[in-house]
Design a protein around this nucleic acid. Structure first.
Length: 418
RNA sequence: UCACUUUACUUCUGU
């Protein structure tokens, strides 16, 4: 049974569902009864892939087979809901878990806290910490790391300082993950100095950096667009025997973009397009976004072309960026092609896509067409950007009356002008 | 043999 579970785990981690399910079927054929581990592993792999419904369905399946879900099962499923942004479902399942007599573990609390933090529900998060304490569960290092990471993502530098201080006062020993979290968190708050300080602290505490550590440092530097410093980190890591990976390159690209340093970007592009640097999805995607941010049409198109050439399926962020840059350059036909491509790829244009489409008409001197798109939206609620786009289109043509008409329509929809 | 934190990118209007 353990052997089967291990094999199943390998397929699960690789995202190979069919193979994983084959293992399950094989177990049943051979009379090996799957246990909670088996189902938990399956649940985790569904959760990782964002298939929360399939994951949740396993609860019923387990019940049918007479296997009691344990706290790992619940934690996994709660995590799955959280990943998919289904926060209410996650909290609901957490309540059900307690009601069903399955006591939450510290990991369950950590999961819930992470979900609340991601959704910026800070008060609920504090409540959950309180509940956890009352429950007799002391925060562990993962809990602290979670809170530190959250402070960083929200850019709350003061809180970050404070939480770190409190953590120290509680005599919680930071580990390598803690330091990496701190480096990233300070970087996100815009404080490269503190990020570098944390890197020093980490070394002083006797931890050996890994590639993720260097990337965390690189991240802090890249946000400032200091490519000289970034390249010196790359050199450092090379000297320590680490080869920059795709994330390192991606960070370097972002750094150049921030700096509006097209020359620097070209240097990497040359490496990627000549095959010296492996054209991974992450790198090509970064190149599109970086060129897009620099409003560099040619570079954006080139990178987009490479994505397709290498057999990757562009996602909506990429396609919307293409729509946007074509709108900005008045390349109507190309924009239409992207819109068709979205459908051909069986993706659903989202509000951003439609806003770009409207912008294309608005900038092309066809505000009426833009308004038609606006009024033709089904299943998507236009937002302030949509209205602003159309209003702007009319204004550009000097059609103030029409602009005002759309403006009042927007007010009627209950949208606040800005 | 399973779960929680921990390195990249996140796109649209106006000024």
């Amino acid at each position: 049974l353990v052997t089967y579970n291990s094999v199943l785990q390998i397929f699960s981690k690789a995202g190979k569902f069919t193979e994983a399910l084959d293992i399950l079927a094989k177990m049943e054929r051979e009379g090996i009864i799957p246990d909670a581990f088996t189902y938990n592993e399956l649940a985790a792999s569904y959760a990782r892939a964002g298939l929360y419904e399939e994951a949740a369905a396993l609860l019923d399946k387990m019940a049918n087979k007479g296997i009691k879900p344990n706290f790992v099962t619940y934690t996994t499923l709660i995590h799955g809901y959280g990943n998919a942004g289904m926060i209410e479902k996650a909290l609901h399942l957490f309540e059900n878990m307690k009601k069903s007599g399955c006591p939450p573990s510290i990991s369950t609390y950590n999961t819930v806290i992470a979900i609340l933090g991601k959704k910026r529900r800070l008060n609920d998060m504090m409540d959950m910490l309180e509940e956890m304490r009352n429950y007799g569960c002391a925060p562990n290092r993962v809990t602290w790391n979670t809170i530190l990471a959250m402070c960083g993502k929200q850019g709350m530098e003061k809180s970050l300082d404070r939480v770190y201080e409190v953590m120290m006062n509680h005599r919680v020993e930071p580990d390598r993950d803690t330091f990496e979290t701190l480096i990233t968190a300070y970087g996100r708050c815009g404080s490269t100095e503190d990020a570098l300080k944390m890197f020093d602290e980490m070394l002083k505490s006797g931890f050996t950096p890994r590639i993720t550590t260097y990337n965390a440092v690189l991240n802090a530097i890249a946000r400032k667009g200091d490519s000289v410093a970034a390249n010196s980190v790359i050199n450092d890591m090379r000297n320590k025997g680490f080869k920059p990976d795709k994330i390192s390159y991606s960070l370097l690209i972002q750094c150049y973009a921030k700096e509006k340093n097209l020359k620097g970007m070209e240097k990497i592009e040359k490496g990627v397009y000549s095959g010296k640097i492996y054209p991974s999805w992450i790198i090509l995607r970064s190149l599109i976004i970086a060129n897009f941010k620099c409003r560099h049409l040619e570079g954006t198109e080139r990178a987009f072309h490479e994505v397709q050439k290498n057999g990757y399926k562009p996602d909506l962020v990429i396609l919307n960026s293409m729509l946007s840059i074509y709108a900005r350059n008045g390349l109507f036909e190309k924009g239409k092609e992207i819109f068709d491509l979205i459908k051909k790829l069986e993706l659903k244009p989202d509000l951003v896509s439609y806003n770009c489409l409207m912008d294309m008409y608005a900038k092309g001197g066809e505000p009426w067409e833009a308004e038609q798109v606006l009024n033709g939206l089904t299943g998507i609620k236009p937002d302030v950007v949509s209205y602003n786009t159309v209003i702007n289109g009319f204004c550009k043509q000097g059609l103030m009356k029409e602009a005002l008409r759309v403006f009042s329509q927007m007010l009627r929809e209950g949208l606040q002008p800005c």
